[in-house]
Write a protein that binds this DNA or RNA. Structure first.
Length: 799
RNA sequence: GCCCAGGUGGUGGAAUUGGUAGACACGUUGGACUUAAAAUCCAAUGGCCAUAAACGGUCGUGGGGGUUCAAGUCCCCCUCUGGGUACCA
């Protein structure tokens, strides 16, 4: 009766494959459940044990929902465009397509070896032209809606990778991938107007069943702030400077102004004697990496322009400075500085000896800026007011005097949507010689990637596509004009922005998805993935989804109803798994030694799904032992000879049904497994159980360890697949208890336990407890003040 | 700096609304089986004190205070760890 997991697992994987056990179609007679994993990037190193954590969780929920009568959509695919593949292609000269196909093969074999209940007929790959045709199609929708535009912008140029990166891909002045230095350089880029959706992306977060911290991160990223736009006249010029401020109430305390070095007015207003200094400063700022510019600890720098502005509230002249602590990309790129009540301005004023005028009472402005609420002083018509009232009054005053208006600003910026790379979706864009642009029509899609010899970027900043004349230069059949194709490609986020929609209807050649499939399957009921995508992927996908919603192409405002982030799995040494540390665990190794069911079970048993937790091979052995014991016990007919089940076993069984069901619903897989262990231990002690008991237990186990469950199910003489069986229902009858062992404590300290009938009245319990000889001892002649009796919980005697 | 999460035995972790802290598992120790080992099975296993043994006592959920009959759980202060973020006006 050996547990031959290797044979068992291969046998059932083959069975599921051949019988298409998990094939799924739209079926209006059943409620649907759409479960989604963040699909993997098929890297060259294959799966690591972090991947199956989320996948196992979704698989358990999927199999459970199936047994609960749902029509479950649980697909898998590949986020297969991406930089590492292209870099590998550059190094080896092998076509990224070939590399990708190979990597996918490895990933697929590995995933299949884990027994996930995917409908493999729905497999998609973002680098497949059948898929990216529709990514391009969505781009045309964005373009035609006016949400895509080209702009000459300061971009993050990485000389090493020869690519432009979005701000969010640059970490501390280095590229997120590879850690190369990034500098700023102006370049024409495709942009998506995600800012137009900022408010809705913010508001609709409220209705999502997402972890609060993720919602908070998105809120912070969008960074909505309400304030006022104030116009400052420039002395001896007829121009004005607009500033954005959330603290218009401190206007009387504005003692200078600051423009970002890139601000267009800087060169216009700088006086002759300051020109040299200012130009030098601008040059220096441009040469600085983001790392240097955003280093909070550094001393503030800046130069005086020689020009002055007029503070509109008191007509005082205040100097205008240039400093790189003001960012051109936020607000208007200019600020009014209130050093008494803003720490950054305070530091700057201190350094350059500029006046600091307090306009709110409180704090000690000799030491630091006072940023809290207080009563206004030195503020004319605001004197005596608190912050909120003063802001309102000032804003009304500004509007009345046509000196400003209310304004809302966002940290969120438009999305830089082009990459100078080969391995991405080409844009469906033609550029004519006269500089005009045409976005292709549906019937002209897809624009496929041409074959190239070399994958290196052109070096001028353009992608390798710029070198392929035959692809690049075309005569547009629709207009007859000569045209050049757009040589940029889309970023990796593009494909993953809508893959969940394609999963609803992956084989559709006519449309990206049918209305019927979309209406039936959407939204995604449960989305599990890593927290690293908390902001970008999830925000971009929500943005696209809202655009599609506005176009009537999808029926839900939000794509992902419930989101859960699985925690990282660390190496045995408690460090992040990495090749360099040599602590990477390959799932193949675990499958070979202990089997897929053990791997699945262990990943779930380690601890709460959301938590970061270290790997332990000993732990794998622990759950492996459990499976061996379960197999040896239940597969042996000698143990299933009981005719009528013991009440005690029935009780544990039904407790187990209840706990496993509740825990799966709550994604608490670790405690569900421990309950199944308790049950198995109980059965082994009992010696024999009924076949019915064994079958019920096997069904409970089946979402977790599906291969073993199928095997047992067959051994019991049933027809496969157990995946189609109904999930057991617990019966309250068997859970009833009539006696309870009450812990009795004196002044909150547990002293002894006493078995009492649950039917007893409080007075009877009290009498029983007090007459117990142990109680007499603990009372020690003293009189009890009162007795607290909590039904089925505890008895506490207060002495 | 700010925001978020967290700190429970030797280890991973349990503890549903405040109600028996340490479920389950790993590890360790002892025993059975074996020529022996592995595997398996059985038993013990938070610290300290006490005891021939049993019954026990006492401390204990990062630290300190508080609320409560009762606190891992609620409140206040401190501390440490992990993650995120970066001059956003």
């Amino acid at each position: 009766m050996e547990y031959k997991f290797g044979e068992i697992e291969k046998k059932w994987q083959k069975y599921w494959d051949e019988n298409k056990t998990f094939k799924v179609e739209v079926d209006h007679s059943k409620p649907k459940f759409f479960i989604l994993d963040m699909f993997p990037y098929p890297s060259g190193s294959g799966l690591h044990v972090g991947h199956p954590e989320g996948y196992t969780a979704t698989d358990i929920v999927g199999r459970f929902k199936l047994m609960k009568g749902y029509n479950v959509l649980h697909p898998m695919g590949w986020d297969s465009f991406g930089l590492p593949t292209e870099n590998y292609a550059i190094k080896t000269g092998i076509h990224p397509n070939i590399i990708t196909k190979k990597n996918i093969q490895v990933f697929k074999r590995q995933l299949k070896s884990l027994g996930f209940a995917y409908d493999w007929d729905r497999e998609i790959s973002t680098s497949d032209k059948k898929y990216y045709k529709w990514t391009q199609w969505i781009f045309t929708k964005l373009y035609n809606k006016g949400l895509a535009y080209e702009d000459e912008i300061q971009v993050n140029w990485c000389p090493e990778l020869k690519i432009v990166m979005a701000n969010e891909e640059v970490v501390n002045g280095k590229s997120e991938l590879g850690g190369y230095t990034v500098i700023r350089k102006p370049m024409k880029q495709w942009m998506l107007k995600i800012t137009e959706y900022a408010d809705r992306l913010l508001e609709d977060l409220d209705e999502l069943d997402w972890p609060d911290n993720i919602k908070e991160m998105q809120r912070n990223w969008i960074g909505k702030s309400e304030g006022a736009n104030v116009k400052f006249k420039i002395a001896d010029h007829n121009q004005t400077i607009d500033v954005f401020t959330t603290r218009s109430d401190t206007l009387f305390g504005a003692t200078y102004m600051v423009l970002a070095p890139e601000h267009e007015l800087v060169t216009k207003i700088t006086t002759a004697e300051n020109r040299k200094k200012v130009n030098e400063y601008i040059q220096k700022a441009a040469g600085k990496s983001d790392l240097e510019r955003t280093d909070l600890a550094k001393e503030k720098t800046g130069v005086f322009t020689g020009a002055c502005a007029i503070n509109p509230v008191n007509n005082k002249k205040i100097p205008i400075w240039v400093a790189d602590y003001v960012l051109i990309s936020y607000g208007s790129g200019a600020i009014m500085a209130v050093p008494a009540h803003d720490q950054r301005d305070w530091e700057f004023a201190r350094h350059f000896d500029l006046p600091v005028i307090p306009v709110l009472e409180g704090g000690d402005i000799e030491k630091e800026a006072f940023v809290e609420d207080g009563i206004h002083i030195n503020s004319g018509f605001l004197d005596g007011l608190g912050k909120e009232d003063a802001v309102n009054k000032m804003n009304s005053w500004l509007i009345e005097n046509k000196l400003g208006k209310k304004e809302i600003n966002y940290k969120l910026r438009d999305w830089v949507f082009s990459r100078q790379r080969y391995w991405g979706e080409p844009f469906p864009i033609l550029k004519y010689e006269d500089g005009t642009v045409r976005c292709l029509d549906d019937d002209e899609l897809p624009v496929t990637l041409p074959e190239v010899e070399k994958y290196e970027p052109s070096g001028t900043g353009e992608s390798p596509l710029a070198n392929i004349d035959s692809w690049l230069n075309v005569t547009d059949p629709k207009t007859g004009k000569k045209a050049r194709r757009e040589t940029n490609t889309m970023p990796q986020w593009a494909g993953s922005c809508w893959y969940y929609l394609r999963f609803c209807d992956p084989g559709n050649d006519e449309k990206a998805w049918s209305d019927e499939a979309e209406k039936y399957w959407m939204p995604v009921d449960l989305y599990i993935g890593g927290v690293e995508h908390a902001v970008l992927h999830l925000l971009y996908a929500r943005f696209w989804h809202k655009v599609l919603y506005d176009l009537g192409l999808v029926s839900t405002k939000e794509p992902f109803k419930k989101l859960v982030n699985q925690g990282l799995i660390l190496g045995e040494d408690g460090e992040k798994m990495s090749k360099s540390r040599g602590n990477v665990i390959n799932p193949d190794h675990v499958v070979n030694n202990y089997g897929a069911d053990s791997l699945r079970l262990y990943e779930m048993f380690m601890g709460p799904l959301e938590k970061v937790k270290p790997w332990s091979e000993k732990g794998v052995k622990g759950v492996f032992n459990f499976l061996v014991r379960a197999y040896k016990f239940f597969a042996n007919p000698d143990h299933l000879t009981k005719e009528t089940e013991d009440p005690e076993t029935l009780k544990v069984l039904h407790q187990t049904i209840r706990k496993v069901e509740n825990d799966i619903e709550g994604l608490r897989f670790n405690t569900a497994i421990s309950q199944m262990m308790i049950f198995t231990n109980h059965c082994m002690k009992a010696g024999t159980v009924t076949r019915n008991t064994a079958e019920i237990f096997t069904k409970l186990l089946s979402p977790f360890a599906p291969h073993l469950a199928e095997e047992l199910w067959q051994i019991f003489g049933n027809r496969p697949s157990i995946a189609y069986e109904e999930f057991p229902v617990y019966n309250e009858e068997f859970l009833k208890e009539d006696i309870f062992e009450y812990p009795v404590s004196f002044n909150g300290k547990l002293r002894f336990k006493i078995e009492l009938a649950l039917s007893l009245e409080k007075e009877e319990i009290e009498a029983a407890v007090l007459s117990d000889e142990r109680a007499v001892r603990w009372l020690d002649g003293k009189k009890q003040k009162k007795i607290i009796i909590v039904h089925k919980k505890i008895i506490n005697v207060v002495v």
